[in-house]
């Protein structure tokens, strides 16, 4: 989820129809600026250099669970349809990237699922399988993040990601934010008043090809 407000105007995004390094590039309809999801910024055009503003308000979840959490939810409908066949099952199971694209950075395999984010102008990634049960990382003197995945998560399920200036610790099997004492509820995806960290789940080749200097959190 991204804000559409940049430099005092509201833009409408759409797919450009093109890729950079096998990854989606959007354009906005107002300035025709090109926006890279993987780089998290405008990469060419009038708004070049503007960071995409992530709104950490969403999660990928199965419909039955979402509907259970929010019975009052409304669902997008297009031409009378709210769902469609899964056209990409084979792609997600394939070890190769789009059109056979492979990762050049061999720290992880091409299609390794990762959680990726940008912070302070730098790119970070962590492999899904290393995040089972939760893992804290320190990015700077006063910046700590906690990334969490359950041990039965589908790769589609969003990684839970939070940021704190005080840090996180395990207490009796639960992740707790230092200072506030807030506890992570992995089922609900909530962490008291802890701040959610913007980011997204993707494949290693998509992110690393567009962020060759990405830090791999291990």
């Amino acid at each position: 989820m991204y804000s559409r407000d940049y430099r005092g105007r509201t833009v409408d995004f759409e797919a450009s129809g093109g890729l950079v390094n096998s990854s989606l590039v959007m354009q906005d309809q107002q300035t025709d600026t090109y926006w890279s999801i993987m780089e998290g910024k405008a990469i060419s055009g009038e708004l070049e250099g503007e960071r995409l503003k992530e709104l950490p308000v969403g999660e990928k979840i199965q419909w039955r669970h979402w509907k259970g959490k929010y019975p009052e939810t409304r669902a997008l409908s297009i031409d009378g349809r709210e769902d469609a066949p899964d056209a990409y099952r084979a792609y997600f199971r394939d070890e190769d990237g789009f059109r056979g694209q492979a990762a050049e950075d061999e720290r992880l395999s091409t299609k390794a699922p990762i959680f990726a984010f940008h912070h302070g102008g730098a790119a970070f990634a962590a492999e899904h399988r290393t995040l089972v049960g939760g893992k804290p990382f320190q990015l700077g003197d006063e910046t700590f993040v906690l990334l969490y995945r359950s041990n039965h998560s589908s790769m589609f399920r969003s990684t839970l990601a939070f940021v704190s200036s005080a840090g996180f610790t395990l207490d009796d099997g639960s992740w707790v934010e230092k200072g506030t004492g807030a506890r992570l509820d992995p089922t609900a995806g909530t962490f008291g008043a802890a701040v959610r960290l913007g980011g997204f789940d993707t494949f290693w080749y998509n992110f690393s090809l567009n962020n060759p200097n990405a830090t791999l959190l291990e």
Binding site: G58, Q62, W63, Y70, T73, A75, E82, D83
Partner: peptide
């Protein structure tokens, strides 16, 4: 939600 024809196991982006 009750009108939405979505398979229970389908993945959605919820916000």
């Amino acid at each position: 939600a009750d009108e939405a024809k979505i398979a229970p196991s389908s993945w959605v982006l919820g916000v």
